[in-house]
């Protein structure tokens, strides 16, 4: 399902102009990371995807749906949104019930819903925790419950807001694995992140925002290669990219295997 954003402006009731004319197209199945300093408009932008915010002017559509014409609860069947803090959504007495909440709201048939829940729990490695109270789990596992509860909604588009913040290395690897699987399923993934290393490893397209406008938009290695422009929005290229540059490698390095190949070749 295609996301088309056309000259989107948004001003908060406080008068803060957060988005100043953003135009983007995100194609079905793309893996997109959005980066930029705090206050660049990242969260404001993605909150338009499922109608939590409506444009002050301009338009955004999800498939053929213009978001102004649909409630967030309706748009939830097309766009899943994993909030940054899992504690802002968990309320069920056990993990299974929590993960089933979204699919039930969307009105899937019982058998279909059960199947979706089962797959989401397997993907997030929660099978042995189905009957645990979410609040008895560690914060990292609560994050996985939040992920599962959105993945189970089977939306063509999924948004992650800072998925790796506060997570240990094992869980970051788990989240990367989840994103890779979503890609195989052909679902669009849009992620807001400060974690530029995570971004370089897992995303093919990167959009850098600064002061409510698109600063850079393109393939990961093209965007991450432009260190000077990225510095305007206080983003530093990944360690590996900087290392490659210092070593004088010709191409812009974003991934480990690419680095090893380049080293071997040169």
């Amino acid at each position: 399902m295609k996301i088309i954003i056309n000259n989107l402006h948004f001003t908060y009731p406080t008068g803060l102009e957060a988005l100043k004319g953003i135009s983007l197209t995100i194609n079905p199945g793309e893996q997109v990371a959005i980066v930029g300093q705090n206050g660049a408009g990242k969260t404001t932008l993605v909150r338009h995807f499922n109608g939590l915010l409506k444009p002050t002017s301009g338009a955004i559509s999800i498939g053929e749906w213009e978001t102004t014409k649909y409630s967030t609860a309706k748009l939830a069947s097309r766009v899943g949104y994993v909030f940054q803090n899992p504690d802002e959504q968990l309320f069920s007495r056990d993990v299974l019930a929590e993960v089933s909440f979204g699919p039930r709201n969307l009105g899937y048939e019982k058998s279909k819903a059960d199947e979706l829940v089962k797959r989401a729990m397997a993907l997030t490695e929660l099978n042995d925790k189905a009957e645990t109270n979410p609040y008895d789990l560690s914060p990292t596992w609560r994050k996985m419950v939040a992920l599962a509860s959105i993945i189970a909604m089977d939306t063509p588009i999924i948004i992650f807001d800072e998925p790796t913040t506060g997570q240990d290395a094992v869980n970051v690897a788990r989240i990367a694995n989840v994103i890779a699987e979503l890609k195989r399923e052909g679902r669009t993934v849009v992620t807001i992140t400060h974690d530029i290393d995570f971004c370089a490893e897992n995303f093919e397209r990167i959009i850098a925002l600064a002061k409510g406008q698109v600063l850079l938009d393109g393939l990961a290695r093209d965007v991450l290669g432009q260190g000077e422009i990225l510095a305007q929005t206080y983003v530093e290229p990944p360690q590996l990219t900087r290392l490659g540059k210092r070593l004088g490698l010709k191409e812009t390095i974003t991934k480990q295997d690419q680095f090893l190949n380049a080293i071997a070749r040169d």
């Binding site: 909150r47 609860a73 939830a76 899943g80 949104y81 909030f83 802002e88 959504q89 959105i150």
Partner: peptide, 14 residues
């Protein structure tokens, strides 16, 4: 924020 998070999970609030 919770209101928004749950609406994003398909919860109707209107």
């Amino acid at each position: 924020t919770i209101l928004d998070a749950q609406r994003s999970r398909g919860l109707e609030t209107e």
